[in-house]
Design a protein around this nucleic acid. Structure first.
Length: 906
DNA sequence: CCGTTGACTTGGCGACAACCCG
DNA sequence: CGGGTTGTCGCCAAGTCAACGG
């Protein structure tokens, strides 16, 4: 189709070029010498090494992407920086073994000036961030910037593991993983005084609320004033950051307005327009720099635009000042990077279509796609399983299900009676009443399992050529399904493959685990497509689609009912890189940013209600507090046929333990049956309120008996348009990243900055409780590292001895094999010693990082919670190639954020 | 109101590929 | 060059939340 639009492209390396799959290789010259950064124990590792210097094929464009370091000097806007804060590394011994340990509260972070304390900031920040809650405002006196704070800070250095509770014991994680215990201090003791300058309102959890009602401190990010600005104006400003330029497609009039109609945004009241995304890339950037600026204002009312047209930065930040010159310079650099893209883009600025003006819900105008692809029909293998020791004949249908079960032999599901039972219930139906097989326990699936393993092995043994051929074959078959054309623009489809049949693998103690998930046929599938688009041909001869719709108020391309739970659906959507998704992603972050302007008042309001006589109000207040401080999920009601997990509104009395004088210990299974364990200090009124909610209830009764998510969200919506519980998670995650980056980034090489980023990322992951299971080889890896370190230490010792001897003119000792070593000068030996020490330190740091991250999953927050503009802007400011932080998929997904102003702050 | 339905986001994990290091 | 790691990607389960229908 004509549509191969060269249209959107940002970074899209992939897209239209057909060589979509070409791996990107970023070539970078910079060497990252591993310098160690003293800050904490983390080490940079991964990012820095990969890609560097790799010979790969560096697409020209890409190359330029990285090139920035060379010229960009001006870009750097150093925020606070200079001081090198060295913090004591692991030194601080705080053996925080106790789970419950609560770390002392730290002083609030100072944003501005604080020169002296600069070095402290990072620490403080860190700590504060450790737990969202932590950042309460504390009285300066207390923890303030006192020197001793260092000591306290040291806690930060404590390995995560130490902080986590239960690690050790938990070896056995239940269904899932180990629980992580966190300890945080939510509450500051609150002195009312607090205040001011030091506090940042927007800080995540911090709470400045305690101040007596009324006084809020304002944040001081340069823009205090902002806080009070009418929202509208702020928003506009913010909004203006994004530009929305769309490239026009050459052929089609493609406009690709990200913006949806605007309309529906509930929040519209205050904010004129949240959205506007620039989904497209600005290929033009390069060419048209000037325009860019102009473009940014697209969504701003014309009148206003005129005013600001000249100054690029004005837009954004109201808060921050613009780094004008700088900015432009950096853009330049940036632009270069996009060279490649440019090549395709010769289009000028796009015409943006006035977004949907008017159509409230309309998500698209034209939609063309090829439907879905089905898994191949089952091929019987004929391997016979045993029943009572004897081979049994099975029909292909029976064998298929038996095979599904057989191949799960080495999974944990085999230890779950529920799984077996459900499997048997479904399989026995297929076997029929009269089948010889009457009892699963007498079944021996081993032959099938072995057959499966052999097949797997065969596959592994294939040469890479064969594998490649196979892959290409598959690609060829799927190619047409991979794309959809939305309003004239070619977009990637997310999951166009219909889910194959299998045994349901629910997480946690899911009551339906093991049930047969039957094969989906065309007859189960409803297609949604443009009215004028050709209806995809049904790939299975003789069958037909269940239904065809032309509903442009939704974004799905197809759906079918979930065989496990027929009242639920499985949808086929566009991929994350599509502008439709990009736009809603952007709106999500804009909403979270809007919360920043309301947060102070919201906190004040709920703080006040901690003691409200009306129990419902009190529950709402406390629940909101928990959602804000701890980034808990809302917690919808669940059916009995789902795993028993909870969120804030569904917390049970037994999930929260009150520990005098004012600590709460949470322990529950959240989404995906991931355990959440955390002990926090809370404000006394909260503590008391929780106690009240618990009285006269059994452990399994609802803590918030008068509450549910709809009531809670209805209440939140009164506080801010469009506000719902999940917005707090996004807000807290993003604001934490933004602040940590701003406070901790120092001068240094790219690798060091990447480490700073990762550390911030880690804090966010901890806040959100994003866990992963410890890899099977973790302990082996650790002991191997320990061994290596020991070995190096041995070498070191020997070197020292040799050094002593050399100084006295004696020859070195023999090595372990008894051979004489070379005579080295004391200087040479000294150098070796230094090198070895550095190596040991690096390894120790690597190890520490590994240990810290063994249960933390960084990816989820990056994908779903961290506003990519924060990252992109930071990369621009600090000359860190964005590819160091975002991989190919993320770059594609966040195309809409790539042109953000370097001064952007969440 | 309230339970249900529908649409869309968030989440951990396994398979596989790319990479690294002796 | 082989095996252990680490990073990507796809899969699909499990949440959130709004709209609907009575």
């Amino acid at each position: 189709m004509a549509v191969q639009a060269p249209a959107k492209r940002v970074f899209d390396f992939d897209d239209d070029d057909d060589d979509d799959d070409r791996p990107l290789t970023f070539k970078r010259t910079s060497t990252q010498s591993s310098k160690q950064n003293q800050l904490k124990s983390e080490v940079k590792k991964p990012l820095s090494q990969r890609h560097d210097g790799q010979p790969g094929k560096p697409p020209a464009g890409v190359q330029s992407l990285n090139g920035q370091s060379s010229n960009a000097q001006k870009t750097k806007t150093i925020l606070s920086s200079k001081a090198s804060p060295v913090k004591s590394p692991l030194a601080s011994p705080t053996p925080s073994t106790s789970l419950a340990r609560v770390s002392p509260v730290k002083s609030p972070v100072l944003y501005s000036k604080a020169s002296t304390s600069l070095s402290d900031h990072p620490k403080q920040a860190l700590k504060r961030n450790v737990s969202p809650a932590v950042k309460e405002e504390k009285s300066p006196t207390k923890h303030g910037i006192e020197p001793e704070s260092d000591e306290e800070d040291s806690e930060d250095d404590v390995p995560l593991s130490a902080r986590l509770k239960g690690n050790s014991n938990q070896g056995a994680k239940g269904p899932s993983t180990s629980a992580r215990a966190k300890t945080q201090q939510l509450v500051p003791k609150t002195e009312n005084k607090g205040f001011n300058e030091d506090l940042d309102d927007s800080a995540p959890l911090s709470s400045r609320f305690n101040m007596k009602s009324g006084t809020w401190t304002s944040s001081n990010r340069l823009n205090d004033t902002d806080e009070k600005k009418p929202l509208i104006s702020k928003i506009q400003q913010n909004g203006s950051m994004m530009k929305d330029k769309q490239l026009k497609l050459s052929m089609v009039s493609g406009k690709r307005p990200l913006e949806k109609g605007n309309s529906s945004d509930p929040s519209s009241v205050k904010k004129p327009k949240l959205s506007d995304a620039s989904t497209t890339v600005k290929a033009k950037q390069v060419t048209v720099k000037a325009e860019e600026k102009a473009d940014d204002d697209d969504h701003i009312p014309i009148a206003q635009r005129m005013k600001k047209s000249t100054s690029l930065d004005a837009k954004s930040s109201s808060m921050k000042q613009k780094a004008t010159k700088v900015t432009s310079a950096s853009f330049k650099n940036t632009n270069k990077k996009f060279k490649k893209d440019m090549k395709n883009s010769k289009y000028g600025k796009s015409t943006k279509v006035p977004p949907g003006s008017g159509d409230g819900q309309k998500k698209w105008t034209t939609l063309v796609h090829s439907g879905v692809i089905f898994p191949p029909p089952y091929k019987a293998h004929g391997v016979k399983m045993l029943y009572n020791g004897k081979a049994v004949d099975l029909t292909p249908e029976q064998e298929e299900v038996a095979t599904m079960f057989a191949v799960m032999k080495d999974t944990d599901y085999m230890n779950k009676p529920q799984f077996k039972k459900n499997f048997w219930d479904d399989w026995s139906k297929i076997l029929g009443k009269n089948h010889v097989i009457k009892d699963v326990e007498k079944c021996d699936f081993t032959p099938i399992y072995e057959w499966h393993m052999e097949e797997k092995e065969k596959k592994k043994q294939m040469t890479s050529e064969e594998k490649k051929a196979l892959k290409e074959e598959k690609l060829k078959q799927e190619e047409k399904y991979m794309w959809a054309i939305v309003d004239g623009v070619k977009e990637k489809v997310g999951n166009f493959r219909v889910e194959p049949p299998g045994l349901f693998r629910g997480r946690g103690e899911h009551p339906k685990m093991g049930k047969l998930k039957r094969r989906i046929c065309p007859n189960d599938i409803t297609i949604n497509i443009g009215k004028d688009a050709p209806i995809p041909e049904c790939p299975i001869p003789g069958e037909r689609w269940k239904d065809i719709k032309h509903d442009n108020t939704v974004t799905w391309l197809a759906f079918w009912n979930d065989p496990i739970n027929p009242k639920e659906f499985k949808y086929v959507f566009l991929a994350a890189s599509s502008s439709l998704k990009g736009q809603s992603d952007k709106e999500k972050y804009e909403k979270a940013r809007m919360l920043k302007d309301y947060i102070v008042n919201i906190r004040a309001a709920y703080t006040k209600d901690f003691t409200n006589k009306d129990t419902t109000k009190r529950q709402i207040a406390v629940a909101t507090y928990l959602i804000d401080k701890l980034a808990l999920r809302a917690g919808n009601e669940k059916d009995d046929d789902e795993a028993d997990t909870v969120g804030c509104c569904t917390l049970k009395v037994g999930n929260v333990e009150c520990i005098p004088p004012n600590k709460l210990k949470f322990d529950f299974l959240g989404k995906d049956s991931i355990q959440y364990v955390n002990t926090v200090d809370v404000e006394l009124p909260v503590y008391k309120a929780i106690g009240q909610f618990q009285t006269r209830k059994k452990p399994n009764e609802d803590l918030f008996d008068l509450l549910d998510t709809s009531k809670l969200n209805a209440h939140l919506k009164e506080l801010m348009p469009g506000l719902t519980a999940k917005v707090f998670r996004t807000y807290n995650a993003s604001i934490t990243l933004d602040e940590m980056l701003s406070i901790e980034t120092k001068d240094g090489d790219v690798a060091e900055k990447v480490v700073v980023y990762q550390r911030a990322n880690k804090e966010v992951a901890i806040i959100c409780n994003h866990q992963r299971t410890i890899s099977k080889s973790h302990s082996a890896q650790m002991s191997r590292l320990t061994e290596k370190i020991e070995e190096l230490k041995g070498v070191l010792k020997e070197l020292k001895i040799d050094l002593d001897r050399a100084k006295k003119g004696k020859p070195p000792l023999k090595d372990s094999n008894g051979k004489q070593k070379r005579n080295l000068t004391p200087e040479a030996l000294q150098k070796k010693i230094t090198q070895t020490n550095a190596k040991i330190e690096k390894m120790e740091r690597d190890m520490q990082t590994k240990e810290d991250l063994k249960t933390v999953a960084l990816g989820t927050s990056k994908i779903n919670y961290l506003d990519p503009r924060i990252t992109v802007a930071w990369c621009k400011r600090h000359e860190v190639p964005i590819e160091k932080i975002f991989n190919k998929s993320l770059l594609a997904k966040f195309a809409w954020a790539m042109d953000v102003d370097p001064d952007f702050r969440f």
